[in-house]
């Protein structure tokens, strides 16, 4: 890859510029869909951007006794991690930056925002933020195990630890979502928990702990944290789309399509996954952390393990 091409890839497509606009667009779709389900009008398309710009211009308030450096850096760290992970995912074709093991790297990078939330909550010197931060990490320990198990299923079956490699394996074969439907389901639920959306918005439960870890974030810190959350939504959907729905692949096609067609397929699959996530958000109430604990380990984790156990049989059957 030449230097200009690399820069273009990092900064424009599918890098920074695309990621920001794509994330804000997904946020709009999510808000609009949920609003229509709740018989509300919903926001206009540019509302997420307007919110972001407005927050950027707001005063940053530093609470007394809070760790200013952590509050300032954690949102940037979150966004940077998610943006890096997004570069490894196939958007219009195989990612040129991909390598064997990039799946593991992406999964680790996508965990950073949660850890950042703990740091923010802990150093906010605010009891709601602290409780929220602890809840965020508690929740992480519950959903990460089944989420990872579900996402490693495709890797094991394809025999590749590269996201793009798994996509290429699916070309000409049934998609992983058809071979491992339970894995897709667990992955979706895990992603919803990772994004801290209803019914898993326990760390940010407005009526209980105000805004959780975000309580003391203001101005551009809050703006970047929200952006990181949106980017996580985009990256999470892209990851699931690549692992289970063949990413940029056209259905029933053995070859990777051209860049434009590949992107359209990627976008369609992302929106489909988002629709499921939005519906889940609109159709449920928030559960309690103890209920998530019980359900996550007993049901979600067992399902993921069962799916894993089927992978060797699937592999021998495929051959």
């Amino acid at each position: 890859m030449t230097v200009p091409a690399l820069l273009l890839h990092l900064l424009v497509f599918p890098g920074l510029l695309f990621l920001v606009s794509w994330s804000l667009a997904l946020e709009w779709v999510d808000r609009k869909v949920a609003a229509r389900m709740q018989s509300r009008v919903g926001p206009p398309p540019l509302q997420p951007l307007a919110d972001f710009v407005k927050l950027l211009g707001k005063e940053v308030i530093q609470p007394g006794g809070a760790g200013g450096r952590v509050l300032g850096l954690a949102p940037l760290l979150s966004f940077a991690s998610v943006a890096t992970a997004f570069l490894l995912l196939p958007v219009s074709g195989s990612s040129p930056l991909g390598f064997q093991g990039d799946l593991v790297v992406a999964l680790y990078l996508l965990t950073v925002p949660t850890v950042a939330l703990l740091l923010v909550g802990w150093s906010s010197s605010n009891v709601f933020a602290a409780v929220g931060g602890v809840r965020a990490v508690t929740q992480m320990f519950i959903y990460e195990v089944p989420f990872y198990l579900a996402l490693l299923g495709p890797a094991l079956l394809a025999g590749s630890w590269s996201v793009s490699g798994i996509v290429e394996w699916q070309a000409g074969r049934p998609w992983m979502g058809i071979l491992q439907p339970v894995g897709l389901l667990v992955g979706l639920v895990g992603l919803q928990a990772k994004l801290e959306r209803t019914p898993f918005d326990i760390p940010e439960a407005e009526t209980e702990i105000v805004a959780g870890p975000l309580t003391e974030l203001t101005g551009r810190r809050l703006a970047v944290m929200h952006l990181a959350k949106d980017a996580l939504l985009a990256a999470g959907c892209a990851l699931l789309a690549a692992l289970f729905l063949g990413g940029p692949l056209r259905p029933f096609s053995a070859a990777l399509p051209g860049a434009v067609e590949g992107f359209l397929w990627f976008a369609a699959k992302t929106l489909l996954l988002l629709l499921v996530l939005s519906t889940m958000r609109a159709a449920t109430a928030r559960i309690r952390i103890d209920q998530l604990d019980a359900w996550g380990w007993k049901v979600l984790c067992s399902l993921a393990l069962a799916q894993m156990a089927l992978v060797p049989f699937l592999a021998s059957w495929m051959e």
Binding site: Q38, T207, A282, A285, R286
Partner: peptide
């Protein structure tokens, strides 16, 4: 309990 759909309805 975070069930905003019923709230709106």
């Amino acid at each position: 309990v975070g069930f905003n759909t019923l709230f709106m309805w």
